[in-house]
């Protein structure tokens, strides 16, 4: 029953027999309409992308309270904060002295010890290696601490000193210092 359809041999062209002015007017109109539509499509894309950014409950400052009463000198404790480990170390006097004595020129990521510590003898750093994200060793007394007495990352051999600064190995930056606040001598709120 169906006739085979021959493709239209000469479809009405855009200009047609009318004056060219009509054609350019149509092209301008099409340009405006097309741009408008393009803006619309762009506007549609943003909500989808932004929905993948951290949601409001994730952003709401999730903080962790730590009681450091039982962390003796020379000891360290690891707490979870925003899904990552945070090292809280009770530094010995020797460790503090060593950290302060390092000249800035020796550091790949120069930072003074004072800039990284708000209340002695506590050092609080995020326990994520700044190279590719492994958790460095050095929290337990049986762990290797690297050549600088701080932490050692076994994945690719980054060495951190007693202020958590990168001294040797592929990591580009010092261990991050999170925002924290001592609410008392023994209570610290991280984040």
């Amino acid at each position: 029953m169906a006739d085979t359809l021959a493709p239209s041999s000469s479809p009405p062209t855009t200009g047609g027999p009318h004056a060219p002015a009509d054609g350019t007017k149509r092209d301008f109109l099409k340009l405006v309409a097309g741009s408008f539509a393009a803006v619309g499509v762009g506007a549609i894309v943003w909500p989808f992308i932004h929905s993948m950014n951290p949601a409001k409950d994730v952003l709401a400052l999730a903080s962790t309270d730590v009681d450091v009463t039982h962390v003796a000198e020379g000891q360290a404790v690891t707490v979870m904060w925003r899904g990552k480990p945070v090292f809280v170390r009770h530094r010995t006097a020797k460790e503090i002295e060593e950290a302060k004595a390092v000249p800035l020129s020796e550091l790949r990521d120069p930072q003074t010890d004072q800039a990284r510590v708000t209340r002695e003898p506590w050092l609080i750093v995020v326990g994520v290696c700044t190279h590719l994200g492994c958790v460095p060793l050095g929290q337990k007394s049986t762990d290797p601490r690297g050549d600088y007495g701080g932490w050692f990352c076994p994945c690719h051999g980054s060495h951190y000193d007693t202020a958590g600064r990168i001294r040797r190995g592929p990591a580009p930056l010092n261990l991050a210092v999170p925002e924290y606040e001592f609410r008392s001598d023994t209570q610290v709120r991280i984040g």
Binding site: P47, F48, H50, S51, N53, A55, K56, D57, V58
Partner: peptide
Amino acid sequence: ERIMRDVNYGWLI
């Protein structure tokens, strides 16, 4: 409900 309240543009999607 989390999508509606906390996810960016979640209510819209």
